[in-house]
Each structure stands twice: as structure tokens, then as C-alpha cells.
Nucleic acid binder design. Sequence first.
DNA 1: ATCTATGCAAAACATTTGCACCACC
DNA 2: GGTGGTGCAAATGTTTTGCATAGAT
Lengths: 137, 137
Amino acid sequence: MSELTEYERRLREAGLRLTEPRRVILRILDEAADHPDATEIFQRAVKKDARISLATVYRTLKMLEETGVVERHAFEGGPARFEQADGEHHDHLIDVETGDVIEFTSPRIEELQKAIAEELGYEIVDHRLELYGRKIR
Amino acid sequence: MSELTEYERRLREAGLRLTEPRRVILRILDEAADHPDATEIFQRAVKKDARISLATVYRTLKMLEETGVVERHAFEGGPARFEQADGEHHDHLIDVETGDVIEFTSPRIEELQKAIAEELGYEIVDHRLELYGRKIR
DNA sequence: ATCTATGCAAAACATTTGCACCACC
DNA sequence: GGTGGTGCAAATGTTTTGCATAGAT
């Protein structure tokens, strides 16, 4: 009666061990409604299992990123922030006052990006679009 | 017969002193065809004036950024890179193989960004679009 | 003469890593 | 039981900062 989540299954398939720290971190990311940084994830992890170390958080996040389970975002000034990968690509609007992150997508912009890159003789392997804004009223 | 450049004049107007380190750093940025990071700027500066310190490079870059004379870019993984502000806004395509940076503009994308932000109830104060690509052929 | 800018060295951060021990498969 | 993962602490890389002095206005 093992209750493996989809993400735990993906680690198994990648030949990686399913340890307690990893389970805890995966759960935190799954529960997170925001885009926490490594320190925040560490703080939340310690509440669930006091023995987890910050080094493991970093190692696990890097591993999960390589496995495609989480995405790393380096927003302006400040540490990298993480979110569970949901398959769908999206971009971010960051509230400069609160730090809140709003997700959005724009197929039109994606198309234009591709066209621009091609015109310059490049094929896009990754891209990043971030809007920094202030709430109106 | 003072030969003040436009940028030196802007510092004067901002009530800032025009020192030798600042003159050197401004000249380096003016001569730079690439987007150097603080360490690279420091290395180039030392060749022109051996007494310049890395701390001053950082302090000067921050000051120049606040004055609007240079722009700071934090590309994926790696230190911040700088370029002289030319007034015109542009985005970047980074060659993932060589690290080369190609500048481009897209008024259409800018418009779409503004529309998206407005729809979400935000006014854009800044934005960042980076394409990471590989040269075709 | 005043007051800002600098150099130096130390500190602050974010992140990575070496090593001995632990625990998953 | 073997190997990969973890904790700890030290190292790394980038950027900032305190303090006494030098230098621009």
C-alpha cells in the first residue's frame, strides 16, 4: 500500500532513491502556492523533519531540476526561487511591491520569439520572460 | 578645454564627483563591445590604472546603474553583466555555446507585454526577455 | 576646508563540496 | 552489503560594507 505520488514515481524511474528528505521536499513543493527559495524550503522542511540540512535542500533541488520535476527561476536581485514543474510552460509577472509572482502564458509572444531567433540564425533552447510591475490602484 | 563625455556630464549634473576610477570605468564601458561582468571590468581597469580596487568597481557600477548610465543584466547562472545604457531598450539572445550576447528589439512583443500586464491589473515598471539559443548550422 | 570616494580587509550571502557515516534497495 | 544520499563544516564565488585616508570641488 505504498502511496507514491507521480513525482515519487518519476524519481524511481530515473533510478534515484526515494529518501525521507526527498519525500519531504517534494511534499513542500507540492503544497507551495508561492515560489519559495532554498532557505524558505529548508525552513518548511525542518518543521516536518528536524534532521534535514540546507545542503540536502540545495542538492535535492538541483537534482529535481535536472530530472525536470522542478523549475528554477532567478528573478532580479535575490536567491533562486523554485516551483514544481507542471508541464505547461508559463512566464512570470513579479509584483515589485510584494514579491508576489503571477503566472501567465502568451502563445503570441512565444511565436514572435521563435521568429526572431530564427531570423538571427538561432534555435531557442530556453527562454525567460519576466514582467516586473506595480498593481494599478 | 575639458573633454567631458556625455556620461561624465551626466555625473556632474547628478552632483557626483568625477574621479579617476570613475573615468576609467566609464571609458571601459564605452569601449566594450561585449557585456562584461564586474571582474572583467576590474581586470580591464587595472590595466589602465593599477590602483583601482574591485570594491570601487562594484560601487561605481551600482552608482552608474542608479544614475541610468549603465544597465545590469543577471543572465542564467553567473555574475551580473553590464553594458552602457544607450537610451534605446533592447532584449538579449544569449548563445548558450559561446556566451555571446546578441541584442534585438521587438515592438510587437513590447506591446503584448503591456497588454498582458494591464489585463492582470498591473503597470510594468521593468521587464526582461532573454532567449537562450544555439546557432543553426 | 569640506565631504565624498577610495582602498583594504572583513563580512555577508547564496551555493557547492569533501568526507565520514547512514540508510535505501 | 554495496552504493548512493546525508549531515556537517569548510570552501567558493559574488557582492557589500566599515573604517581610515586620499582626493575632488
